[in-house]
């Protein structure tokens, strides 16, 4: 699975940056054409749901998607699926 921020919906409130346990979301620095600084993803492959959703067969964590007031965060299927080695620092 791949974590995606929908740039057409994001209003740049940065709430996602406050809830992710891995701090994957970082405040954006550059304004897009709508004048909004979209948060940038710092090594999104660390996301629990990206890594383990298939294994558990259900949604994991998902705090960013829930708190996002603009329904701008979702996961896309990665095709083809390939296992990746990921280093997790807490």
């Amino acid at each position: 699975m791949r974590l995606v921020i929908d740039e057409r919906r994001c209003k740049g409130c940065n709430l996602c940056t406050t809830v992710c346990p891995y701090h994957i979301f970082q405040e954006g620095r550059h304004l897009n054409e709508r004048g909004i600084a979209i948060p940038v993803l710092d090594r999104p492959e660390r996301c629990t749901n990206c890594r383990l959703r298939r294994l558990y067969g259900r949604q994991l964590c998902g705090a960013c998607q829930l708190i996002c007031p603009d329904q701008a965060i979702y996961w896309e299927e990665d095709d083809p699926y390939a296992a990746e080695k990921v280093v997790i620092e807490y």
Partner: peptide, 23 residues
């Protein structure tokens, strides 16, 4: 569950209403 054709919604940046909708 969302009317995708209507998003983004009219709530201001950072408004908590969208979060409550999600929940």
């Amino acid at each position: 569950w969302y009317r995708e054709d209507r998003l983004p919604h009219i709530f201001c940046t950072g408004c908590g209403n969208g979060t409550v909708m999600n929940c």
